[in-house]
Design a protein around this nucleic acid. Sequence first.
DNA 1: GTGAAAGCGCTAACAT
DNA 2: ATGTTAGCGCTTTCAC
Lengths: 339, 339
Amino acid sequence: MTNPTIKDVAKKAKVSIATVSLVIHNHKRIPQKTKAKVLAAIDAFNYYPSHSARGLVNRKSGNIGFVLTEDHFLRTEPFYTQIFIGTEFEAHANEFYVLLTTINPNFRSSDKLPRFILERNVDGLIIAGKVPLLFIKKINKFNIPTVFIDYLPPAKNSITVLPDSFKGGELATNHLIQYGHKEIAFIGGDIEHPSIIERFNGYKKALKDAGIKIDERMIDIEESYPGKSNGFSAAERLINKNKNITAIFTCNDAMAIGAMQYLKDRGIKIPDDCSIIGFDDVVSDNVIEPELSTIRIPKMEMGVEAMKLMADLLKKNLKESKKVLLPIELITRESTIRI
Amino acid sequence: MTNPTIKDVAKKAKVSIATVSLVIHNHKRIPQKTKAKVLAAIDAFNYYPSHSARGLVNRKSGNIGFVLTEDHFLRTEPFYTQIFIGTEFEAHANEFYVLLTTINPNFRSSDKLPRFILERNVDGLIIAGKVPLLFIKKINKFNIPTVFIDYLPPAKNSITVLPDSFKGGELATNHLIQYGHKEIAFIGGDIEHPSIIERFNGYKKALKDAGIKIDERMIDIEESYPGKSNGFSAAERLINKNKNITAIFTCNDAMAIGAMQYLKDRGIKIPDDCSIIGFDDVVSDNVIEPELSTIRIPKMEMGVEAMKLMADLLKKNLKESKKVLLPIELITRESTIRI
DNA sequence: GTGAAAGCGCTAACAT
DNA sequence: ATGTTAGCGCTTTCAC
């Protein structure tokens, strides 16, 4: 059977298409009898309103755009993937579709915007991870309701979902301190990223509270991407500078893995000679040896929360500024040990 | 400025909306002069045709639905994720949007179909991984062009993209044979899955070609899901039955990891006491010890290929039956060794 | 309570 | 070569 339309339903129910529409929208003052007739016809045809037709008249697409940079998209660790899954999940509950697109991490003003923005094919935008400021500026002109995940844009009036990185940094560092460590190094990257800064701040706060002096030589922060290979080289620099390190806190798991690689190559036993703790919890499923202690970020929940905020935002139940910090969790595995 | 429409453009260019439409569609016989006027107006407004309006009149949504089961979606290894990324990538090239949805792996006839099918909000369907037959049967009624990835449905006239599992099974087994192994075990799961069967067939073929007798006691195939824990228990059963195994070929990396775990726990050294090779190549990014030899499946390429087929299919350039086998590749790492 | 009718933005057949 | 017009399927006033 070809796609049934509202006309077919109306004819079958012997009412006008207006009545069918009213029934669909649960209008009051429709007598049970008419309603029943119409619903029966709808059922008989297995009728569903056309998405396009509805979108045209309502000036709503029913779609939410999910934006992240290409490099984030291509990462194999399930970080942004899990976030995406969360948004997708909550989108179903709210009858939205999610349209995903990537942008160039070096977005330039001559670059085209995502097609769904130009075509007005999204009602809202969820932006995950750090994106170029230029991009944000450019889309601002379109006035599309936007929710950020895992990135706090410099402009003040944003709605953002973040893991509690500061507390996470504190928690990780305190864990090491409680295990008796005093020579605790910090490895980080991309220090302009708000989350990384917070993790670093948490680290410093925990040391200070414990009366441990913050030592510049125990800190290695790359400007560039906090990935595996940078973790490797950071560990190399730190160890060469500083033989008495007994523990390392890395700003994420990827750097932790790189650092572990270096320590192993160098013959430094983990955790016996050196404890290490990461952040994110993206490697739990695999066989890493030793298994990595870390701070778990509620990735799916972040996606879910962002989509909930989006739903509120579109219902105008939300002011234009809000920062939601999601709780993190210490996961103790094998890579950290009491000294 | 509020969304510009074709009317605004027409007014500004002092032509009718029909002319604007013709220009947009690059109709022949439009003089350069008119064209230029119109294009200038389009540019001035930064006009893009509304997706909904176009969809309504063309009876096309511009969307492709991507379907997979919930359990596949939630797997943290980047297998289906990579496939999805591939489709997404190629979708951009073809000006499609991808709408993702999950279905219950135990889909029952009373279950609702994905909303985008009911709403006719997709022009085609890409189905990734094994899905319930009931589901396939049910969507067949909607007559939506469909491409399968990594699953060959029993019904004969399907368009499917698959890794060359048979060759992969052969390649993996031959690799072990060339390393001097003769006591080569096979671990598998979900034996009804076409890909798994093919890998197993490749294994048997390679053994036969090498004049090695196929020994039932060297084979452990679970009915259920080929995951880590089943890999663990399969290895346990095999080793207990059969002390002289020197190499194991598992039908995927997840089972390989489980098997490795068992061997380690049991004090069997990899690769010194026992070589092991997996399939899929989903763990390359992480620190596994030893690093796992495997057969690489071109995951992104499978997604790309599927979307290309979809584009052809929608252009009616494709018959309704086609099976594309994508080449696999042997990745030799540390877990396999010459005997 | 229900229907007629206008209109959302666009395409395409038909006029001119 | 360009304009007129009739829809595409739906929502929503406004009459009756």
